[in-house]
Design a protein around this nucleic acid. Structure first.
Lengths: 98, 98
DNA sequence: CAATACGATATCGGTATACAATAATGATAC
DNA sequence: GTATCATTATTGTATACCGATATCGTATTG
């Protein structure tokens, strides 16, 4: 399925957003929806958990409007990975999109 | 592992090359190595088989220098997928690399 | 002719997960 | 007690990846 290709793109989106500012699950679902990626909670949340296990992201909880949100932000490991990914992505784009 | 991200890129590379001209396993291993991706045969060949099962690629065998090679070329399904991937990739790049 | 080297592809066996939809849960406000 | 925002859990399915080894057909070598 073509979805398999996009799942990688989705993770890159997440790392990128989490590098700019702390993000949380539902916000990401909407944001990714704007990019044409439909993610159910059963896909996104476990994905966030894994990214945290792998130390690309770290989380903290905060109560907003008296609801608990779990914010994720990028770690140094994640920043490092992201920059390596960008390099390869640029290479790929240069080769494929010309 | 960061490798997980690259595996998606690798598949895109493969589709792209198979869209330009027929390609075969060992050639791809070298070509990808030039891009900094080390693939063992145990990774690449099953990957090609899956891409064929999923009808992104199709193969035919040819004897070159009295050795049998299995050439893969892209299918209409693969062409379609690739163009969709390119669109999303461009979006991603515009967002992430600026 | 036997042995082996070469270019390629295929397979094996183990490990580790990833993905998805849906339903459940929790806290608070009204 | 019900609606809302948000996360978590459940359950099931399906594979992907990788190193190492095996296989295959032909040509070469001695």
């Amino acid at each position: 399925m073509i979805r398999d290709f996009f799942l990688g793109f989705i993770k890159i989106h997440i790392l990128h957003h989490a590098a700019k500012e702390p993000v949380y699950g539902l916000w990401l679902i909407e944001e990714l929806d704007n990019h044409g990626y439909k993610l159910s909670p059963g896909t996104l949340y476990p994905m966030l958990h894994r990214l945290e296990e792998q130390h690309y992201l770290e989380s903290y909880s905060e109560t907003i409007d008296s609801k608990v949100r779990k914010y994720y932000k990028i770690t140094p490991t994640g920043t490092d990975a992201l920059s390596k990914i960008k390099v390869k992505m640029q290479e790929l784009v240069r080769e494929v999109l010309t």
